[in-house]
Write a protein that binds this DNA or RNA. Structure first.
Lengths: 152, 152
DNA sequence: CTAAATGCGACTAAATAAGTCTTATTTAGA
DNA sequence: TCTAAATAAGACTTATTTAGTCGCATTTAG
């Protein structure tokens, strides 16, 4: 039920990248894997690996060569946590039996549990979809931090 | 982001157990790990392991000895998916940084992402809490199954 | 007191994920 | 046009977690 650490890192990296993505894209210093690793504290090799996956998923665009680098493929407001998590971890489903085309479960149709997972999946997906990169970059409301201490 | 298969099994086992828990607790045939394994198709050793954890978490009660067995510790309506998942997987948190008392993250306070995880955690927890064992045992509404095909 | 049935905990093996390294590609400068 | 430097992309190795198996301790009917 926990997010993989790679997905966690990916969110941090994308958040950092969006801060570099002002009016002009590659304006304030060139943005590349090394820069991101330095800013976020994520190990460089891991950062490179994640950059690859995020690029393959179409969330960032990369130009190689001597003056190359990376940039967000879309504006921060149109990239959600769901996009990032899904890019790194694959289909966003809490149980494998709800992934379309999967028929490994012996119970299948007679299973009374399965339909409930669908509802829960939908809820989780919505929660992750409602948070965009743009809102992540905003300064955290002190109110939210305070209230969080009582949620777990 | 996926549920561990152990937690998945645990839900199926508890669901099966609740069907055996009518008016009289140990009435219809004795309920033990072997019976559950047979009914659900979950491997016996794995079932025994899960029974141990669920018992330790206080969700089921076990009596050993020659006429022993297991039974639900509480009525099905007051046992939720959150209880079961948490019993098997530990604290219900999508990221380790939101678990109380954890300070492994180097970013900590300056992290703009953290407060959002708290909100998402709360949402997921609520979704799992809203589904009780009692509702799981009910026949799945055909309507739900149909609509699920379009959720993922 | 004995024996059978059961739950409980420790151990081993497999799968997955994280991290490291090497290779291929591109472009500025000579 | 060629060379070299900088970068992303992909393959590999290692480590951690997870699933599965086995043997032991405990309990109670006879």
């Amino acid at each position: 039920m926990r997010l993989s650490s790679l997905a966690d890192y990916a969110v941090v990296l994308m958040s950092a990248a969006s801060r570099h993505c002002g009016a002009a894209l590659l304006a304030e210093g060139k943005l590349n894997a090394s820069t991101l690793a330095l800013e976020t504290g994520v190990p460089l090799p891991t950062t490179q690996k994640l950059v690859s996956r995020l690029s393959a998923a179409g969330l960032i665009e990369s130009t190689r060569g001597i003056g190359g680098g990376i940039r967000l493929a879309r504006p921060p407001a149109s990239i959600s946590l769901a996009d990032i998590v899904e890019a790194v971890e694959g289909p966003l489903a809490i149980t494998t039996c709800t992934i379309d085309g999967n028929h490994d479960c012996a119970l299948e149709d007679s299973c009374t549990v399965k339909p409930h997972w669908g509802v829960i999946n939908q809820t989780i997906r919505k929660a992750l979809n409602d948070v965009s990169l743009a809102s992540l970059a905003e300064a955290p409301a002190a109110q939210k931090i305070k209230s969080m201490e009582h949620t777990l």
